[in-house]
């Protein structure tokens, strides 16, 4: 049995377990909010976790995928985690929460000489995804830093132009591109 066949039967379960694992990383007080009774995902963050889970499992399984598509599926979850007062490790570490799940669900079926290397490939793909998540995380933090700066600059945009005008009687044109 090859990897993808094994995954076909297990995808739903792995998705479910991982979503639970991610939700369990949130402090007690926010858990009731993230998983409410009727549908555990009746809220945007829950929805993002689930969206990411499906993309990630697809990628881990080794199916033919488009990198952009996978990125897109985890993009929003990483975005929200990048602003949730988590350390960088905590924010993207959720990717590694797959490992114990995979070892419990997939490894037993592949734990024989003929397919063990395939299992190792699965975990390597997880590493790739973690790097990808790290890239996204860093990009998001950079965007955040950027918009902070941009916001401050924009707040005083006209003021700055006016002040520059004030310092010299030279026409505006001579000022552009120098000294700012």
């Amino acid at each position: 049995m090859n990897t993808q066949q094994i995954f076909r039967d297990k995808t739903d379960k792995i998705v479910k377990l991982w979503v639970e694992a991610v939700i369990n990383c949130y402090p007690d007080r926010s858990r009731p909010a993230l998983s409410s009774n009727m549908d555990p995902f009746t809220n945007p963050v829950g929805g993002m976790i689930r969206e990411a889970a499906q993309g990630l499992v697809l990628a881990i399984s080794g199916a033919d995928i488009q990198i952009e598509q996978i990125k897109k599926s985890i993009e929003r979850l990483i975005k929200i985690r990048a602003v949730q007062a988590l350390s960088p490790g905590e924010a993207i570490g959720i990717i590694y929460l797959f490992k114990p799940i995979l070892r419990a669900e997939i490894l037993p079926q592949m734990n024989k000489p003929s397919s063990f290397s395939e299992y190792l490939d699965i975990e390597s793909r997880l590493d790739t995804l973690a790097m990808m998540a790290f890239d996204l995380y860093v990009r998001d933090r950079e965007v955040l830093a950027d918009i902070r700066i941009k916001e401050i600059r924009n707040q005083y945009a006209e003021l700055k132009r006016w002040a520059q005008n004030l310092n010299s009687n030279a026409p505006l044109g001579t000022f552009t591109g120098c000294g700012n």
Partner: peptide, 17 residues
């Protein structure tokens, strides 16, 4: 209203709230 996750939203290519 209730926030509900739509599975397989065509625009999002995945669930959408």
């Amino acid at each position: 209203t209730r926030a509900i996750s739509f599975e397989n939203d065509p625009v999002n290519n995945g669930p959408r709230v």
